[in-house]
Computed example of a mutant assay.
Amino acid sequence: MPTYVVTGKNTSGEQVVSVNISGINQEPTIVPEIDVVNAVRAFLAGTAGVNSVVAQRYEQVITVI
């Protein structure tokens, strides 16, 4: 399961807010994960003081030898 970090930055590029999404648990899939991430991005983009929003996805890869 990937984790996401959605970051809002001000006009000078400084981070002013960060949201960590550590897991979206559902069985079966009801809502695509990207829709949840985009909803958080849209919310932050509409917030006063936030000029730009970036979402990053992180995945852990485990290799068994």
Rank of each mutant, 00 (worst) to 15 (best):
T7C: 14
I62C: 08
V54I: 13
V5S: 12
P2F: 03
P32S: 12
V16T: 12
D35N: 08
A42P: 02
I30F: 05
T7F: 13
G8E: 03
I21H: 00
A39Q: 08
I24L: 09
E59F: 05
V53H: 02
G13C: 04
V19K: 06
Q56N: 15
T3C: 06
Y4R: 04
R41D: 05
R41C: 12
A39S: 09
P32A: 15
T3F: 02
V17H: 04
M1T: 12
E33M: 13
T63Q: 07
V5I: 15
A55D: 04
A45Q: 15
S12L: 10
V31P: 02
G13R: 08
V54W: 01
V16H: 05
S52V: 14
V16W: 00
T11L: 12
V61D: 01
V19G: 09
T29S: 01
T3G: 03
V19A: 02
G13L: 07
I34P: 04
A45Y: 13
S12N: 13
T47H: 12
A39D: 07
I34W: 00
Q26H: 10
Y4P: 01
F43A: 14
L44F: 08
A42I: 05
T7N: 06
F43I: 14
V31M: 04
V64F: 10
G49A: 10
I65C: 04
G13A: 01
N10M: 06
E27K: 15
V61Y: 06
G23F: 04
I62P: 02
V36Y: 02
Q26Y: 06
V53Y: 01
G8C: 07
V40W: 03
S18M: 06
R41E: 11
V61G: 00
Q15F: 08
P32W: 06
R41M: 11
A39W: 09
N51F: 15
T29F: 03
V61W: 03
Y4D: 01
E59I: 11
T47E: 11
V17D: 00
A55F: 06
N10Q: 11
Q56V: 12
K9W: 04
V54Q: 13
E14P: 01
S18Q: 12
N10P: 05
F43P: 05
S12T: 11
S52L: 12
